[in-house]
Design a protein around this nucleic acid. Structure first.
Length: 111
DNA sequence: AAGGTGACTAACA
DNA sequence: ATGTTAGCCACCT
């Protein structure tokens, strides 16, 4: 299975009310240093399929970091709130408390 | 097939 | 504490 597909699959596994970081997804998919690629993959995939909980993937500091115009931070923020994730808004940036919401993948891991 | 491109990060200044 | 820099690496052309 390609890295790309693993990223898609793994993202689908993030439960409601939790978030994961790009680096975390990359690591779970076997390439700990490919965090930036995860962002690219999600972006590309959204443009074609769009059927994944992409809003649950944020950066290592807990901030929403999309720069995509079609899928802006405001949208991601509202989707996350809808997921039950509280966001702190300041200086035009949204941040989730990783200590509270970071996904801890425990069960079924299929590398 | 080779090179440009980031929804990244951790390390510096 | 806040802003830059420089590695990174798989995706898309």
């Amino acid at each position: 299975m390609s890295f790309k597909n693993q990223v898609i699959e793994t993202t689908k596994e993030i439960p409601r009310g939790r978030v994961a970081t790009y680096g975390q997804i990359a690591a779970l998919c076997g390439s700990p240093r490919a965090a930036i690629s995860v962002g690219q993959i999600l972006h590309n995939y959204l443009d074609e399929q769009g059927d994944i909980p992409w809003q649950r993937v944020i950066n290592s500091k807990g901030y929403i970091s999309t720069t995509c115009l079609e899928h802006p931070a405001e949208l991601q923020a509202s989707l996350l709130k809808n997921d039950g994730v509280a966001l702190e808004y300041s200086r035009g940036l949204y941040r989730a408390d990783l200590m509270k919401y970071l996904w801890q993948p425990t069960t079924k891991r299929h590398i």
